[in-house]
Nucleic acid binder design. Sequence first.
DNA 1: TCTGGGGTCCTAGGACCC
DNA 2: TCTGGGGTCCTAGGACCC
Length: 417
Amino acid sequence: MRKAGGATILHADLDAYFASVEQLLDPSLRGRPIAVGGGVVLAASYEARAFGVRGGMPGRRARQLCPGLRFVGGHFHEYTRLGDQVIGVLRDFTPLVERISIDEAFLDVSGAVHLFGAPAEIAEAIRHRVRAEIGLPISVGVASTKHLAKIASQVAKPDGLVVVDAGREREFLEPLPVGLIWGVGPVTGARLAGLGIRTIGELAESSTSFLEHLLGKAAGAKLSALATNVDLRRIQVTRRASSVGAQAALGAGVPTPELLRTTLGYLADRVAARLRASGRGGRTVTVRVRFTGLRSVTRSLTLAAGISATLTLTDIAVELAWSALADHPREREITLLAVSVSNLVDDVVLQLELPLDLSDDAYRPGTVAGAARWRVDRSVDAIRARFGRDAVGYATVALSDFSRVPEAFRELAERGS
DNA sequence: TCTGGGGTCCTAGGACCC
DNA sequence: TCTGGGGTCCTAGGACCC
């Protein structure tokens, strides 16, 4: 295990990002409680948070908590553009930038101190430039490990800087609530609280074996490692997704063959197009069906080779969805469908070169049907690249509108929000 | 107008192979 | 024929994060 060295890891995190962008774009919103979203709160300004409004909260509940709350439409393209600009500022200080979402990133500045000064000075310079050049508040945590830097940036919010000097980690962590630890959510938090463990200091007093027994091997070991400030994770400049998915909330609807085919066709199209664009295919297809009451089930299937053809993915998704429905005959309505592909493999083009197996069905790559579908998809991709996403598609899919959220929001989320 | 949409990681049980 | 252990893969579910 690597024991952390000096405090050279930074975690930079834009404050209330979507809401801050809206306040930047429209000065009349500054200093006021606002929320981005509608049916559900995607982001809340700090003025709104003072009333208890939180991201992920139903819009109606948010209005109850904060009667003066102003909902504003999301400028999703602006979130993407400004987020990229902020990352550009970070890269001026070091190439060792690991972006983990649209609005936050880790930096390793150990090689940058000769040029730009101590990590704390770099952090201040970043905050100043992001404020002056882009107009957004950003908080930064500085520490010896990623995990600690992330906690420090949370403590720094809003619009602050917190440096945890090497050697003083324990003292910093001790009074903080366990919920600040990445991976401790409501369930784990409640379980720990049930044992009288509320602060990280109290957590640190518990033995590894006790935590493993309580929370599972991985979570227990992780919490233990944090308490002793051991963090193996280094900055990863490039990361590749290990799964690609899409989902659509439906309101409540009776699952007819038409509804399933159309919705899953739309979702499969989104997923397959992204796979093809990255030159990959997926071996495991997972479908999630959510019933009323937020109860959901999944069904998955693993193939011998990766697929990325829209119709092939659609066929499999439809079969899996019916299988899930068949196992829950008492559920009359569904509220969401999701398609996800994992077990990703490179060089999908190879599926055209696999030996043909005429006895197989169209599901399998390497078949005549599978290869033909893939070629059609590539043509569709090329047309869309020139004329836009709506220029061409499968009839039932192109005619459908599943946008309970704007297309721009889906695109934003694909990049990680 | 009663919960977006996109991800990661972990666990447990069972099949299957050696 | 009975008994056994270890490893890998697949499936389903769940917690958590932004």
